[in-house]
């Protein structure tokens, strides 16, 4: 079957005539090759131009030099200077993840209930992650990146479902492992981060393990004459109860006592449970759950911002007015609201 192929030939491989081979010659040639390799294996291979010599890497004494682009498992980044996480919970990585192992929930403004560019929860199931790197590629805020750590074997299966605190890493960590890749996106990432910080009220969006930074920021935003508030972390406290849910006219007037303001929260709790050791998989969850319980007890009573305070005052006035009207009007009159 002839065929015209361009720029090349059809070459029939040479089998070599059977009879012309020296009997045993082939075996001797093979042994010569093996001998050469065996001799060479006592020396270390110094260049990939040569095919002899060993280039075994004696792991774990010798560590592999991983290229920057190496991807194993995803991690979240936060900026050490401001303490804010880069993630805005835009859900792009959750949508693109082929095995669907990323789950997150977005923070909501405690007052208006609107979505904020910050996280309340972020979960990645490391055991099903296929390391494809699509999440890191698609993130518009450069918040999720692929880590190089590959020694993640553990006998605790539940510990392979990692949460936000365990996934958080400072930007300096990522810059250390992939400097060129970070340098390419650094400027735009910081610019977007500044924009997001402006849109995040209070301490929402700060990395939960940076307790001092959170406390400092809180002091900055709310000078001490205003009531210092419980919830050390703008977490489920706000999203669970919402800004105005769980509010009643009664709470509007009761909630301002100094007693409630400090109940359930102490400086001790601020540092307990949030230490860096919790960044390892499998350990962080319990201690963080323990630290959360006290704040949540006293939480629904006292909002923080003075904007919220004003809104609360307005609501209290409205509620009082309505109660007064309801008391005045006959009960049979239908009210369609």
């Amino acid at each position: 079957m002839t065929s015209q192929i361009q720029r090349g030939n059809v070459v029939t491989v040479e089998r070599g005539a059977r009879g012309q081979r020296v009997p045993g010659g082939g075996l001797l040639a093979s042994m010569a090759v093996v001998w050469k390799h065996w001799q060479g294996s006592f020396r270390k291979n110094d260049s990939f131009e040569k095919i002899h010599g060993t280039f075994t890497m004696e792991y774990p004494e010798e560590r592999p030099r991983l290229p920057e682009a190496f991807r194993n498992m995803p991690i979240l980044l936060y900026d050490e200077a401001s303490g804010h996480e880069l993630c805005t919970s835009c859900f792009q990585c959750q949508r693109i993840c082929p095995p669907q192992v990323i789950h997150m929930s977005q923070a909501k403004d405690p007052v208006t209930g609107k979505a904020l560019p910050a996280l309340t929860e972020f979960v990645i199931e490391y055991d099903a992650c296929m390391s494809c790197g699509l999440c890191a590629e698609i993130c518009p805020f450069d918040a999720i990146k692929m880590d190089h750590a590959f020694e993640l074997a553990t006998s605790d299966h539940a510990g392979l479902t990692l949460h936000r605190e365990q996934l958080n890493r400072p930007i300096s960590y990522y810059e250390g492992i992939a400097p060129n890749m970070w340098a390419e996106v650094k400027d735009s990432a910081f610019k977007k981060l500044q924009g997001n910080i402006k849109r995040r009220p209070d301490v929402i969006g700060m990395a939960p393990n940076l307790a001092e930074k959170i406390a400092a920021r809180r002091r900055e935003l709310h000078p001490p004459e205003l009531v210092a508030a419980p919830a050390e972390e703008a977490k489920d406290v706000w999203s669970a109860k919402g800004g105005t849910d769980g509010w009643s006219a009664k709470d509007a007037t009761d909630g301002w006592s100094a007693k409630d303001a400090t109940d359930g929260w102490s400086a001790k709790d601020a540092t307990d449970g949030w230490s860096a050791k919790d960044a390892k998989p499998g350990e962080g969850r319990e201690s963080s759950a323990a630290a959360e319980a006290p704040p949540m007890a006293g939480a629904p009573a006292a909002p923080l911002d003075d904007k919220a305070a004003r809104l609360a005052a307005i609501k209290a006035k409205n509620a009082a007015k309505k109660a007064a009207e309801a008391a005045q009007l006959p009960p049979a009159a239908p009210q369609d609201e």
Binding site: G16, G26, S30, A32, V33
Partner: peptide, 10 residues
């Protein structure tokens, strides 16, 4: 060289 003329392979 290792394999082509090798009698066993053939």
């Amino acid at each position: 060289r290792l394999l082509r003329e090798n009698e066993i392979l053939i």
